[in-house]
Design a binder for these strands. Sequence first.
DNA 1: ATAATTAATCGTAAAAATACGATGAAATGA
DNA 2: TCATTTCATCGTATTTTTACGATTAATTAT
Lengths: 110, 110
Amino acid sequence: MAAPKLEEFLKAEQELAQFAKALSHPARIAILKVLASKTECVCGEIVEVLPLAQSTVSQHLKELKEAGLIKGTVDGPRSCYCINWKAFEKFNQSFNQLFSKLKVQQQSCC
Amino acid sequence: MAAPKLEEFLKAEQELAQFAKALSHPARIAILKVLASKTECVCGEIVEVLPLAQSTVSQHLKELKEAGLIKGTVDGPRSCYCINWKAFEKFNQSFNQLFSKLKVQQQSCC
DNA sequence: ATAATTAATCGTAAAAATACGATGAAATGA
DNA sequence: TCATTTCATCGTATTTTTACGATTAATTAT
C-alpha cells in the first residue's frame, strides 16, 4: 500500500494534519501573505508575484480553497480570492492547542 | 518539471513550509503527542501505539528528526526519542508570527 | 459578431511521500 | 558462542504532489 492510512488516527490529528498540509508549500504561504496584504485579491496579481505558471498557481489556490483557508468569487472574467478568516482562526487555535498540549510536560529524557 | 520550485521563495516561507510538512501527517502528530506524554520514549512503544508497521514508524521518526522537531539517542539495542523543545519553540513562534502577520488587516473583499 | 482577456481545467511527466516486508547491524541474554 | 531483541535501512509498489503547456469557458472590449 502507498496511500496514507488516515482513517486509523484521531479526527483531531487528521484535521490538523490536513491544515498543516495546506501550509506545507512556500507558494501557498506566499499566496496567503499576498491575500492578507491586499484588499483587491485578483488571481492575476498573485500569478504576477509568484515564480510559477498560471496553471500551477491556480492549482495551489484550489488546494487552499479545499482546505477552507481561502474563499473565491467570480468577478466578471476574473477571480477574486480572499482569506477565510473564520477558518483561519480555527486553524490558528488548533495549532496553539497542540503546542500548549505538548508543552505541558516539557522534559527531555535524552 | 515536477520537483517543487522551493529556491524561488523567501527563506522564511521555505522554513515554515518545511515545518508544516513535518506536521502534515497524522502519524507524526500522534508521535509528537506520545513523546510529550512520556518520559521514557523508546521507539518500540511508539510502534505499539500507532497502526503502522515498524519500518513505517521508523521512517516517520526520521522525518521528524530531519525537520529538527525531535532528537534521538541510542540506548543499547533500543532507540530513545524525545521532542527537541528548542526547535519546537521556534516552530511555534514562526507559526504565531505568520498568523499575527496575516491578521493585521483582517478584512475580506469577497 | 469577433477578438482579446482571464482563469479554470485537462493531460501529462517527473518527483516525492507513504507503506510494507525483508534484510542487516548492534547490543543483550542464555 | 549463539540466539534473541530492537530498530534502522533497503528494495519496491502505489499514490500523491508539483509543475507546465494546451485547451476551454466565460466575460469584456472592439
